[in-house]
Amino acid sequence: MAIAERTKAYPRPSLHRASQLVYRNALAYKHYWIAFISGFFEPVFYLVAVGFGVGQFVGGVPFGGGQLDYASFLAPGMLAASTLNGALFDGFFSPFFKLNWMRTYDGIITTPVNISDIAVGEVAWALIRGTIYGAGFLIVMLVFGLIHSPWALLALPAVMLSSGALSAGAMILTGITKQISSLEKVMTLVVFPLFLFSGTFFPVSLYPGYLRPIVQATPLYHSASLLRALTTGAVGWATLWHVVYLVVMFVLASALAIRLMRRRLIS
């Protein structure tokens, strides 16, 4: 049938239209600027409490054939975790409410802005916010002497990549969840284990051999490992693999998220 064929030719996202979503979020945050600023402190608190507090009892962590002080080990992990938190908030919680409660998107799609523009715009916003926090955190790391290599100059682009990949992944959750109780399930069953067990707080080498591949399949593991390689200077071919993983995740998750969002909004 002709109509079914034409329906398949969905409009491609336009960066210009997507940027309107970014502007919309910035405008909304003008009213919630304290919430915006508070996002910066979370990883800093973890770094101070766990890295410098608990770290005093830890000593060195085996890393790259040598020993690394615990705060230097933990800091890039917390940086990666902050991109996960940001992605979750901007890619899942906020779009979840806009989609299911405020019906913001139902209004927007009556304008020339399409669903793909909305998805790209939300991910772009998450990426921008994650980058701002990441830059702040990298300065904190520099001040505390936790940056050991000029490779760290690439840490900010790595933060952007991580934010993009994780928020595109979070948009998939937006596309498949309808009940508010799902938010809690996602937090307890997905986010918290990722946060704790992805090589953020302790090296993956501590896991028994059969668990390691599972951990190494998670996006946060790649994000934390990539950032750690860059801030410590332990860069090798394996580092490139982390980049490839995150790039592929970004592309595939974005495409899937757009598809799922379309299914929710167009019927």
Binding site: R24, L27, A28, H31, Y32, M102, R103, T104, D106, G107, T110
Partner: peptide
């Protein structure tokens, strides 16, 4: 379009 249910942007 004026939809049946209001979908104004309540954060603005």
């Amino acid at each position: 379009v004026v939809p049946q249910m209001d979908n104004l942007d309540i954060e603005l």
